[in-house]
């Protein structure tokens, strides 16, 4: 895959921008380059997220990977501050785990290369 590292950094950018813009959340990000894949772990805390917002985030994010769209649209990720590209993030990842614990959210994304 071409531009793989750039795609990873744009995914991180998009997710971080989303949580900063909408919730001004405390954020911790880890990126693990592994054999044949990248694993990204995000920990957001002290966020005031309603049940509806959480469900909307989940619905937008948890979609099937779609390489037929990714190669074309990946350059849009991380471009706009009022970011609404969570669906695009979902389309670029093979596995998405989203968990909520009180005012904290943990998100783990895996992208195979």
């Amino acid at each position: 895959m071409k531009h793989e590292q750039k795609k990873i950094s744009k995914i991180v950018d998009e997710v971080l921008t989303y949580f900063l813009y909408h919730f001004n959340a405390e954020s911790r990000i880890e990126v693990f380059p592994e054999q044949g894949r990248y694993r990204m772990r995000f920990q957001f805390s002290k966020l005031d997220i309603s049940d509806q917002q959480y469900e909307e985030l989940k619905a937008g994010l948890v979609v099937k990977r779609q390489p037929e769209l990714e190669d074309y649209y990946w350059q849009l990720t991380g471009e706009i501050e009022e970011s609404n590209e969570m669906m695009l993030i979902g389309m670029m990842c093979d596995s998405i785990e989203l968990t909520r614990n009180g005012d904290s959210i943990q998100l783990e994304l895996v992208r195979r290369t």
Partner: peptide, 14 residues
């Protein structure tokens, strides 16, 4: 077209 189309998205940000 394929590489150009992807690049041109940034001109108008979608």
């Amino acid at each position: 077209l394929p590489p150009l189309a992807s690049h041109m998205l940034r001109f108008h940000d979608g």
